[in-house]
């Protein structure tokens, strides 16, 4: 029972990440009709926004270490600590949550310039050419990051106060020994909030209404005298922000390195395809579904029956879905059905 409870949490947590990444990808496909192979790179850039924030906050001065008296020792002390003492230390400790403040404008800028500069010229070209161009872009972005930050993963810890595990066993009246990392719980909460935020934006605002209409029938919306293209540029920026946030908040879970984007790219496409290309609800549902499936497949009981199933389950699901129901779980009829 406890094991199952933990697996459900694990699954929801993974699913939250999958849903967030896939949401941006499917948003771009649904509106712009562009297959974006650079999407994983956006996730990676988001994670490196967290790294950048951490590096910026810990810009240090070379000072003498006064705690060591019997020889001259030097240490790097962050300026924030010098100026504000304990408060500065707290700020540095909270660098990952604070990085959201940097991630949003940075990713918005990156997204907008990507759409304006490159993606825009590929609307009319074939999907294969879009894939190739964005694949090249992904390589370029990841190599730029490597030349700046190096090839090794950079640990970006969560704040100390929530670095440990939450005693969820005690909270829910289950076994006392049941614990779960705080940060993963926060990530789950964060992903639910962000997903609801995006949906609220699309459902409740006029802008969102136009975008939804544009997803449905782009030509008609254009004929009504609305500049769809401009809105879609903003949508691309929004997708970049959502993906970047997903990456920034993921940094404490997985230390960012330059090629993490390529791994998540395949994953996000799998999620989008299972949910249905261009379907927002589908992407979210498929994200959580695949997350749950994967965490249950990695239980030892399951693994003894079918060895290795945890490694391939989501790909297997994707293959079956594409072959049996190409429009995905919640895709619209007639969209991408061949």
């Amino acid at each position: 029972m406890d094991a199952i409870f933990i697996q459900i949490l694990n699954g929801l947590d993974k699913g939250g990440a999958y849903a967030l990444i896939a949401l941006g990808l499917t948003l771009v496909f649904g509106t712009l009709g562009v297959v974006n192979f650079a999407h994983g790179a956006l996730f990676m850039l988001g994670a490196f926004c967290a790294v950048t924030t951490q590096k910026l906050l810990t810009i240090s001065k070379h000072v003498q270490d006064t705690s060591i008296t019997f020889f001259d020792a030097y240490k790097d002390q962050p300026y924030l600590e010098i100026w504000w003492g304990d408060f500065g230390r707290t700020i540095i400790d909270w660098s990952v949550p604070l990085s959201i403040l940097l991630t949003i404008p940075a990713m918005l800028l990156i997204g907008l310039s990507m759409e304006r500069g490159l993606i825009r010229h590929f609307y009319k070209r074939s999907h294969a050419e879009q894939i190739l161009m964005t694949f090249g872009l992904a390589i370029v972005l990841q190599e730029i990051i490597r030349s700046i930050f190096g090839a090794n993963p950079i640990p970006t810890p969560a704040p100390d106060i929530i670095a440990g595990s939450a005693p969820i066993g005690a909270l829910f009246g289950l076994d006392e020994a049941l614990v779960y990392p705080w940060w993963r719980l926060i990530y789950l909460l964060f992903s639910i909030i962000t997903v609801s935020g995006v949906f609220a934006f699309l459902q409740l605002t006029t802008f969102g209404m136009v975008v939804r209409a544009g997803m449905h029938d782009r030509e008609t919306v254009g004929l009504l005298g609305i500049n769809v293209e401009r809105r879609f540029t903003v949508v691309f920026g929004l997708a970049a922000v959502v993906t970047g946030l997903a990456g920034a908040m993921y940094a404490p879970i997985l230390s960012p390195d330059y090629h993490m984007g390529m791994d998540f790219l395949v994953l996000s496409f799998i999620v989008v395809v299972v949910g249905g290309m261009g379907s927002l609800r589908g992407a979210v549902a498929a994200g959580f579904l695949l997350g749950l499936l994967q965490s249950f497949a990695s239980m030892n009981e399951v693994k003894t029956i079918i060895p290795g199933i945890d490694q391939i389950i989501i790909y297997l699901v994707a293959v079956v879905i594409i072959l049996v129901r190409p429009r995905g779980l919640m895709g619209r009829k007639g969209v991408m059905e061949d």
Binding site: V35, H127, A128, I131, V266, F269, I270, V273, M277, G308, Q311, I312, Y315, L316, A318, V319, I322, L323, P326, M336, D338
Partner: peptide, 23 residues
């Protein structure tokens, strides 16, 4: 399947084979 679905299918098979070869 054709088009992008074909690409994603081959991608999925590639990842499956890679993961299995590792584990």
């Amino acid at each position: 399947r054709s088009g992008i679905y074909f690409s994603i299918l081959t991608l999925a098979f590639a990842q499956m084979s890679y993961n299995m070869a590792y584990s």
